[in-house]
Protein backbone atom coordinates (compact mmCIF):
# COMPACT_ATOMS: atom_id res chain seq x y z
CA UNK A 1 0.00 0.00 0.00
CA UNK A 2 1.36 3.38 -1.03
CA UNK A 3 0.12 6.76 0.15
CA UNK A 4 0.44 10.23 -1.33
CA UNK A 5 -0.27 12.85 1.28
CA UNK A 6 0.88 16.01 3.01
CA UNK A 7 3.42 15.60 5.79
CA UNK A 8 4.07 18.36 8.32
CA UNK A 9 7.72 19.29 8.67
CA UNK A 10 8.18 19.07 12.43
CA UNK A 11 11.93 19.60 12.50
CA UNK A 12 14.57 20.68 10.00
CA UNK A 13 18.21 20.29 11.01
CA UNK A 14 20.99 21.72 8.87
CA UNK A 15 23.69 19.11 9.50
CA UNK A 16 26.15 21.11 7.40
CA UNK A 17 25.85 23.68 4.59
CA UNK A 18 25.32 20.79 2.18
CA UNK A 19 23.02 18.48 4.14
CA UNK A 20 19.66 18.75 5.88
CA UNK A 21 17.74 16.25 7.98
CA UNK A 22 13.97 16.63 7.78
CA UNK A 23 11.58 15.08 10.27
CA UNK A 24 8.07 14.84 8.86
CA UNK A 25 4.78 13.75 10.36
CA UNK A 26 1.92 12.29 8.38
CA UNK A 27 -1.71 13.03 9.22
CA UNK A 28 -2.70 9.55 8.14
CA UNK A 29 -1.25 6.29 9.46
CA UNK A 30 2.00 5.25 7.80
CA UNK A 31 1.99 2.11 5.69
CA UNK A 32 4.64 -0.54 6.32
CA UNK A 33 8.03 0.91 5.29
CA UNK A 34 11.35 -0.92 5.05
CA UNK A 35 14.98 0.10 4.71
CA UNK A 36 15.94 0.77 1.10
CA UNK A 37 12.54 2.09 0.08
CA UNK A 38 12.22 5.71 -1.00
CA UNK A 39 9.80 8.61 -1.10
CA UNK A 40 8.83 10.89 -4.00
CA UNK A 41 8.86 14.38 -2.53
CA UNK A 42 7.31 17.45 -4.11
CA UNK A 43 9.47 20.56 -3.85
CA UNK A 44 6.80 23.25 -3.99
CA UNK A 45 9.24 25.80 -2.60
CA UNK A 46 11.26 25.78 -5.84
CA UNK A 47 9.81 27.59 -8.85
CA UNK A 48 12.19 25.81 -11.24
CA UNK A 49 11.49 22.27 -10.02
CA UNK A 50 8.90 20.38 -12.02
CA UNK A 51 9.18 16.74 -10.95
CA UNK A 52 9.18 15.15 -7.51
CA UNK A 53 12.53 14.31 -5.96
CA UNK A 54 13.23 10.68 -5.04
CA UNK A 55 14.72 10.56 -1.53
CA UNK A 56 15.76 7.49 0.49
CA UNK A 57 13.90 7.01 3.73
CA UNK A 58 16.33 7.38 6.65
CA UNK A 59 13.97 6.21 9.38
CA UNK A 60 10.27 5.57 9.88
CA UNK A 61 8.30 5.35 13.10
CA UNK A 62 4.73 4.12 12.66
CA UNK A 63 3.77 5.03 16.25
CA UNK A 64 4.46 8.74 15.82
CA UNK A 65 3.70 8.59 12.05
CA UNK A 66 7.04 10.25 11.39
CA UNK A 67 9.77 9.69 8.85
CA UNK A 68 13.18 11.28 8.47
CA UNK A 69 14.75 12.26 5.16
CA UNK A 70 18.42 13.09 4.77
CA UNK A 71 18.83 15.45 1.83
CA UNK A 72 21.90 16.72 0.00
CA UNK A 73 21.73 20.19 -1.51
CA UNK A 74 22.14 19.07 -5.14
CA UNK A 75 20.02 21.65 -6.97
CA UNK A 76 17.09 24.01 -6.57
CA UNK A 77 14.61 21.28 -5.65
CA UNK A 78 16.63 19.73 -2.84
CA UNK A 79 17.73 23.18 -1.64
CA UNK A 80 14.10 24.26 -1.36
CA UNK A 81 13.31 21.14 0.66
CA UNK A 82 16.22 21.69 3.06
CA UNK A 83 15.25 25.34 3.50
CA UNK A 84 11.54 24.69 4.09
CA UNK A 85 10.58 26.27 7.43
CA UNK A 86 9.39 23.91 10.15
CA UNK A 87 5.62 23.72 10.34
CA UNK A 88 5.12 23.77 6.56
CA UNK A 89 3.48 20.93 4.65
CA UNK A 90 5.39 18.81 2.14
CA UNK A 91 3.59 16.41 -0.19
CA UNK A 92 5.15 12.95 -0.18
CA UNK A 93 4.38 9.68 -1.93
CA UNK A 94 5.70 6.54 -0.21
CA UNK A 95 6.88 3.84 0.28
CA UNK A 96 8.28 3.15 -3.18
CA UNK A 97 10.56 0.44 -4.53
CA UNK A 98 11.91 -2.75 -3.07
CA UNK A 99 13.80 -2.78 0.25
CA UNK A 100 17.11 -4.40 1.14
CA UNK A 101 16.87 -8.14 1.57
CA UNK A 102 18.00 -8.94 5.11
CA UNK A 103 19.26 -12.48 5.69
CA UNK A 104 20.69 -13.79 8.94
CA UNK A 105 24.41 -14.53 8.38
CA UNK A 106 25.44 -18.20 8.22
CA UNK A 107 27.59 -17.82 11.32
CA UNK A 108 26.55 -15.76 14.32
CA UNK A 109 30.02 -14.18 14.47
CA UNK A 110 29.69 -12.95 10.90
CA UNK A 111 28.55 -9.35 10.69
CA UNK A 112 27.09 -7.73 7.57
CA UNK A 113 29.12 -4.75 6.36
CA UNK A 114 27.08 -1.68 5.43
CA UNK A 115 29.11 0.68 3.22
CA UNK A 116 27.89 4.22 2.61
CA UNK A 117 29.15 7.37 0.99
CA UNK A 118 27.81 10.91 1.28
CA UNK A 119 24.02 11.15 1.41
CA UNK A 120 23.95 7.40 0.62
CA UNK A 121 24.28 6.69 4.33
CA UNK A 122 20.57 7.49 4.82
CA UNK A 123 19.07 4.08 3.98
CA UNK A 124 21.94 2.30 5.77
CA UNK A 125 20.94 3.86 9.09
CA UNK A 126 17.43 2.48 8.58
CA UNK A 127 18.92 -0.86 7.51
CA UNK A 128 21.13 -0.98 10.63
CA UNK A 129 18.02 -0.49 12.80
CA UNK A 130 16.13 -3.25 11.03
CA UNK A 131 19.12 -5.59 11.38
CA UNK A 132 19.37 -4.92 15.11
CA UNK A 133 15.64 -5.60 15.45
CA UNK A 134 16.25 -8.91 13.67
CA UNK A 135 19.04 -9.75 16.12
CA UNK A 136 21.80 -9.12 13.59
CA UNK A 137 24.80 -6.92 14.49
CA UNK A 138 25.84 -4.73 11.56
CA UNK A 139 29.20 -3.10 10.98
CA UNK A 140 29.55 0.17 9.07
CA UNK A 141 32.16 1.55 6.70
CA UNK A 142 31.44 5.16 5.89
CA UNK A 143 33.29 7.35 3.43
CA UNK A 144 33.17 11.10 2.96
CA UNK A 145 35.16 13.93 1.42
CA UNK A 146 35.98 15.37 4.81
CA UNK A 147 35.08 14.99 8.50
CA UNK A 148 32.34 17.62 8.14
CA UNK A 149 30.60 15.48 5.52
CA UNK A 150 30.20 12.52 7.89
CA UNK A 151 26.57 12.52 8.88
CA UNK A 152 24.74 11.17 11.92
CA UNK A 153 27.84 9.33 13.18
CA UNK A 154 26.48 9.02 16.74
CA UNK A 155 23.43 7.18 15.46
CA UNK A 156 25.58 4.75 13.49
CA UNK A 157 27.86 4.16 16.48
CA UNK A 158 24.81 3.24 18.58
CA UNK A 159 24.07 0.42 16.13
CA UNK A 160 27.50 -1.12 15.59
CA UNK A 161 31.19 -0.61 14.91
CA UNK A 162 31.88 2.24 12.51
CA UNK A 163 34.93 2.41 10.21
CA UNK A 164 35.62 5.74 8.55
CA UNK A 165 37.49 6.99 5.51
CA UNK A 166 37.85 10.58 4.33
CA UNK A 167 39.37 11.82 1.09
CA UNK A 168 41.40 14.45 2.96
CA UNK A 169 42.30 12.28 5.95
CA UNK A 170 40.55 14.63 8.39
CA UNK A 171 39.00 11.62 10.15
CA UNK A 172 39.59 7.87 9.92
CA UNK A 173 41.65 6.42 7.09
CA UNK A 174 42.67 8.71 4.26
CA UNK A 175 41.34 7.53 0.90
CA UNK A 176 38.32 5.77 -0.53
CA UNK A 177 36.22 3.13 1.23
CA UNK A 178 37.56 0.28 -0.88
CA UNK A 179 41.09 1.02 0.39
CA UNK A 180 40.03 0.58 4.03
CA UNK A 181 41.71 -2.38 5.82
CA UNK A 182 38.29 -3.78 6.77
CA UNK A 183 37.89 -4.86 3.16
CA UNK A 184 41.10 -6.89 3.40
CA UNK A 185 39.38 -9.21 5.89
CA UNK A 186 36.63 -11.73 5.10
CA UNK A 187 33.02 -10.57 4.97
CA UNK A 188 30.03 -12.48 3.65
CA UNK A 189 27.41 -9.76 3.14
CA UNK A 190 27.85 -6.21 1.86
CA UNK A 191 25.12 -3.58 1.56
CA UNK A 192 26.09 -0.39 -0.20
CA UNK A 193 24.63 3.01 -1.05
CA UNK A 194 26.55 6.00 -2.36
CA UNK A 195 27.78 7.61 -5.57
CA UNK A 196 27.79 5.26 -8.58
CA UNK A 197 31.61 5.07 -8.95
CA UNK A 198 31.90 4.12 -5.29
CA UNK A 199 29.22 1.44 -5.55
CA UNK A 200 30.89 -0.03 -8.63
CA UNK A 201 34.23 -0.21 -6.80
CA UNK A 202 32.55 -1.82 -3.79
CA UNK A 203 30.76 -4.32 -6.04
CA UNK A 204 34.13 -5.30 -7.55
CA UNK A 205 35.67 -5.62 -4.08
CA UNK A 206 32.72 -7.74 -2.93
CA UNK A 207 33.15 -10.06 -5.89
CA UNK A 208 36.85 -10.52 -4.99
CA UNK A 209 35.96 -11.29 -1.36
CA UNK A 210 33.22 -13.70 -2.42
CA UNK A 211 30.67 -11.58 -0.52
CA UNK A 212 27.07 -11.08 -1.57
CA UNK A 213 26.44 -7.43 -2.39
CA UNK A 214 23.27 -5.35 -2.54
CA UNK A 215 23.47 -1.80 -3.87
CA UNK A 216 20.89 0.99 -3.93
CA UNK A 217 20.76 2.94 -7.21
CA UNK A 218 19.60 6.51 -7.70
CA UNK A 219 18.86 6.76 -11.42
CA UNK A 220 16.99 9.89 -12.46
CA UNK A 221 13.28 9.23 -12.41
CA UNK A 222 9.99 10.94 -13.14
CA UNK A 223 7.05 8.93 -11.78
CA UNK A 224 8.60 6.63 -9.15
CA UNK A 225 5.97 3.92 -9.67
CA UNK A 226 6.96 2.15 -12.88
CA UNK A 227 4.84 4.10 -15.34
CA UNK A 228 7.24 6.37 -17.23
CA UNK A 229 10.09 3.88 -17.79
CA UNK A 230 12.67 6.66 -17.51
CA UNK A 231 14.87 5.33 -14.67
CA UNK A 232 15.89 2.05 -16.29
CA UNK A 233 19.05 0.14 -15.46
CA UNK A 234 20.52 -2.58 -17.66
CA UNK A 235 20.22 -5.94 -15.89
CA UNK A 236 20.63 -9.59 -16.81
CA UNK A 237 16.88 -9.45 -17.60
CA UNK A 238 17.20 -6.39 -19.84
CA UNK A 239 16.18 -2.82 -18.98
CA UNK A 240 14.18 -2.64 -15.76
CA UNK A 241 12.78 0.29 -13.78
CA UNK A 242 14.93 1.21 -10.78
CA UNK A 243 11.82 2.64 -9.07
CA UNK A 244 9.91 -0.65 -8.98
CA UNK A 245 12.47 -3.46 -9.47
CA UNK A 246 14.99 -1.53 -7.34
CA UNK A 247 16.28 0.78 -6.06
CA UNK A 248 18.05 -2.10 -4.29
CA UNK A 249 19.65 -4.67 -6.57
CA UNK A 250 21.84 -7.65 -5.88
CA UNK A 251 24.89 -6.99 -8.05
CA UNK A 252 24.47 -10.41 -9.62
CA UNK A 253 21.42 -8.87 -11.36
CA UNK A 254 23.39 -5.96 -12.80
CA UNK A 255 25.85 -5.86 -15.70
CA UNK A 256 28.50 -3.86 -13.84
CA UNK A 257 31.05 -6.65 -13.54
CA UNK A 258 30.72 -7.96 -17.11
Amino acid sequence: MKICTDFRLTESRHLSPAYGLLTLQSEEPLPEIHAGQFAQVRADGSKTTFLRRPISICSADPETRTIRLLIRRAGNGTAALIDTPAGHLINIMLPLGRPFDIQAPDQSTDRPLLIGGGVGVAPLLFLGHEMRQAGICPEFLIGARSASDLLLLDEFKALGDVHITTDDGSLGHRGVVTAHPRLQRPVSQIFCCGPAPMMKAVAAAAAKLGASCQVSLENMMACGIGACLCCVEKTVRGNVCVCTEGPVFNINQLTWLD
Binding site: T48, F50, L51, M220, M221, A222, C228, C230, K234, N239
Partner: peptide, 15 residues
Protein backbone atom coordinates in the same frame (compact mmCIF):
# COMPACT_ATOMS: atom_id res chain seq x y z
CA UNK B 1 19.66 5.57 -20.03
CA UNK B 2 19.46 8.55 -19.54
CA UNK B 3 16.02 8.84 -21.05
CA UNK B 4 14.66 11.80 -19.16
CA UNK B 5 15.53 15.42 -18.47
CA UNK B 6 13.60 17.90 -16.39
CA UNK B 7 12.94 21.19 -18.21
CA UNK B 8 11.06 24.39 -17.31
CA UNK B 9 7.45 23.34 -16.59
CA UNK B 10 7.99 20.07 -18.38
CA UNK B 11 10.25 17.19 -19.20
CA UNK B 12 11.97 15.56 -22.13
CA UNK B 13 11.72 11.81 -22.56
CA UNK B 14 13.33 9.35 -24.92
CA UNK B 15 12.00 6.02 -23.70
Amino acid sequence: YPRMAETPSGMLNAV
